[in-house]
Design a binder for these strands. Structure first.
Lengths: 238, 238
DNA sequence: CTTGCCCACTCGTCCGCACAAGTAACCGAG
DNA sequence: CTCGGTTACTTGTGCGGACGAGTGGGCAAG
């Protein structure tokens, strides 16, 4: 059975309006249709339209003025836009083609340090790649402490179709709370260079993923070829 | 008549709960009273309680789990701090030793694009270095549109002792509002390699600095040798 | 003991309605 | 002409009710 879940109506209204703003149909400064008009257009209750508009306002897409109307601000630029390679790596679904190898290996020095265990403690290393068309656009390694991987499929070479984060949540109720990322420029390791088919500089992302208590769920390292990737960040100055 | 306006009820509920979290009455991890209980306690409709709780959740005070309850996160922390090479470069004071050269040159393609002007439009290029002990730890170039530099000392090779940001503010009342940064890994240019004394990979930061109206005040490019620099970033997950 | 179902409880979403309050255009009295 | 009120719009807030869906404990059948 095709059980595709429809997103909630208020979210549908939000996406529709966001799309129109991006398309320029609603330009910055324009007044949006009134709540009543939107109610008619989308065939939903005012509660729903109001919730969509108020959420958009909180996210900075629009501005609402009591008695006048809602106006396009067109500047959804918020700290939410930051690229977060660490998190997206933990969330991305896997497929058979992008698993390179999964093995139990002694923890490399820098990984052991981040996990707070002794060097050479055995850990699970899960090597993957991401493809963009024909080319390998990223080489990723995820390291798991044994006690985390215990009872999960993280130590098996089968693809996790819902991603690592989902798997941890579903199988062991482990929740990701925060991520520490360290970014640097470096040469790819021999293995990475082979996978990427190039030894030009890479952006190295080393991320430590924690649960709410601060324990390390995994450490991950991503090598992003410099000629393929740019990380963008916009911020307000106090 | 003392017409003091009572804040809306949903806001009253929010502040009450926030207060209890701050006081420790609701400790992190605790389950909040259920919506129904809060309805009874505050004598308001469920709509109101739900709105309060959902807003608190969006602000990061609590977490709501479908079917289980609402839980104190006790973490109204703002989006985590991030290193911002772009801004600090604009703020750092200069000294005679770290000015390499200042000249009027045609805008390079990528700079012209960010400024929104034609390629080869003349701009002021200000080349600098940062030292760490004996070693040059960063090579920076700041490009200014002519109309910005006009009437300032930005086009003169004398060090700006209070930094570029201060100078713009003091001399022309120009205020920095936001910065867009693009990060990538690349090989240093010939000039950068010479200044840095190495041609190992660098972290390239290309930042566009805007005033409140969105006009570009300057574009700056920083080359950070990968073996000397790491950019760290911590963030909360949803 | 284990398994599977039921049920009470939780939050998620949505509706229709009501009234308050701010805004702006119109219109008539002066 | 100016002024002030009326009126038709807008958003802000609030209620009660309804149904859906996820969670977890209890309970009875196996």
């Amino acid at each position: 059975m095709s059980m595709d879940f429809a997103p909630p109506k208020y979210a549908q209204v939000m996406t529709a309006i966001q799309q129109r703003i991006r398309d320029g149909e609603y330009a910055p400064g324009d007044m949006l249709p009134s709540e009543t008009q939107l109610v008619r257009e989308f065939g939903v209750g005012r509660t729903t339209v109001v919730r969509a508009l108020q959420t958009l306002a909180m996210q900075g897409w629009i501005e609402r003025e009591h008695g006048r109307g809602s106006f396009v601000k067109g500047r959804p630029e918020s700290p939410a836009e930051r690229v977060r390679p660490g998190l997206s790596t933990a969330e991305h679904p896997e497929s058979a083609e992008n698993i390179v190898s999964v093995a139990r290996v002694p923890a490399p020095r820098h990984v052991a340090k981040l996990m707070g265990v002794d060097e050479r403690t055995p850990v699970i290393a899960r090597h993957r790649v991401t493809r963009q068309g024909d080319r390998v656009s990223a080489a990723e390694t995820l390291w798991f402490p044994l006690e985390i991987a215990l009872g999960t499929d993280l130590d098996k070479p089968d693809p996790l179709r819902h991603g690592v984060r989902q798997h941890l949540q579903a199988v062991k109720h482990l929740r990701i709370d925060h991520v520490t990322e360290r970014l640097t420029a470096r040469k790819p390791t021999k293995e990475e260079a082979e996978l990427l088919g190039s030894s030009s500089p890479v952006l190295g992302v080393l991320a430590t993923v924690h649960d709410p208590a601060g324990s390390v769920l995994l450490v991950l390292s991503v090598a992003l070829p410099g000629d393929l990737h740019e990380l963008e960040d916009v911020y307000q100055v106090s």
